[in-house]
């Protein structure tokens, strides 16, 4: 059943509408658990679109196995998805910096407050992101250290490769996940793939994981796989590589591979004079879980992140 979460009139004959699809058993007992799958906060991140489609398809093909309520919100920033803009188009705002919003505030804040109100009370929320157009990520959960205890049991079962437990930062208090966690809706942020693209294999991997968690929670009685055991890491063991010169980055290793400390990851090239501006090396020994996808780099552009340690 498709429902409108919030709608706001635009200037000429159109409304900004945020919609969700509510899937539930035909007979409700009143004790059903409720899971919200949300994505599309950043209009240039599309991996979640395919996950939403797949979940919709699987759940509707096996209605008899649905024992709880699943709500799918494919586009929290529909105008952004439509216009290929990361933020909310008219406001030039990162939508993930305005939560929990304000009912009486400006339009974007009002919309944010209605989203929170709609999700409030859910037993779990999964907020699917897809990095950005610059970086490719392996399927991972991102969890603030303060919520780790509560969220790890869910994050471990999502069939992800990696769970990154990061330090808290004041500025991140305006994210959807932080706002929901603080009103007792456990919310796991998933980052995977790359902006403006769909990586089918990652989408299937996460869809399988969501079905596992649904089964754990008694929302789904259909088939579910035994999920992968993710690598779990705290902040300290992550090495960052940033460009120290502008140019064109060409990698020479593959994403999601082990690298040795000092091993060459790629080069930054100068297309005007044919020189190599920078040889880029791994800062520590470990696994390359983030790799630059977009070739043009400036001084400071992130090129890679390496998780320290030995991995198979």
């Amino acid at each position: 059943m498709i429902k409108e979460v919030v709608s706001v009139g635009l200037a000429v004959d159109e409304c900004l509408r945020i919609k969700k699809n509510v899937l539930q058993p035909e007979q409700l007992t009143g004790d059903e658990k409720r899971i919200c799958i949300v994505t599309g906060t950043h209009g240039d991140e599309l991996e979640g679109q395919y996950v939403c489609y797949e979940l919709n398809r699987i759940l509707q093909e096996h209605k008899e196995c649905l024992k709880g309520i699943v709500e799918i919100y494919p586009a929290l920033n529909p105008l952004g998805v439509d216009s290929i803009s990361r933020g909310i188009p008219m406001f030039d705002l990162d939508m993930n910096r305005i939560f929990p919003g304000e009912e009486n505030g400006a339009v974007a804040e009002y919309v944010a407050s209605q989203i929170i109100e709609d999700i409030a009370g859910a037993d779990l929320c999964i907020d699917i992101h897809a990095s950005n157009i610059f970086l490719r990520e392996i399927p991972q959960a991102r969890i603030n250290v303060n919520t780790a205890q509560r969220l790890l049991p869910f994050a471990r079962r999502l069939n992800l490769d990696f769970v990154w437990i990061h330090a808290a930062a004041t500025v991140l208090e305006s994210t959807l996940a932080h706002s929901l966690n603080s009103i007792d809706v456990p919310t796991v942020v998933v980052e995977m793939g790359v902006g403006m693209r769909i990586t089918e294999e990652f989408c299937h991997q996460l869809t399988d994981g969501i079905l596992c968690v649904m089964k754990d929670m008694g929302v789904w009685s259909g088939e579910a796989i035994e999920p992968k055991k993710p690598i779990i890491s705290q902040d300290g063991e992550v090495g960052f590589v940033n460009a120290e010169a502008p140019g064109i980055f060409v990698p020479c290793v593959e994403h999601w591979r082990n690298v040795q400390k000092g091993q060459r990851i790629g080069r930054i090239l100068n297309s005007l004079d044919g020189t190599v501006e920078q040889e880029v090396y791994a800062p520590i020994h470990g696994m390359l879980f983030t790799l630059r996808e977009y070739p043009v780099v400036s001084c400071g552009s992130l090129i890679a992140r390496v998780l320290g340690g030995d991995f198979e």
Partner: peptide, 8 residues
Amino acid sequence: PLVMEGTI
């Protein structure tokens, strides 16, 4: 020159 519904 244009406004959305709910604009301050």
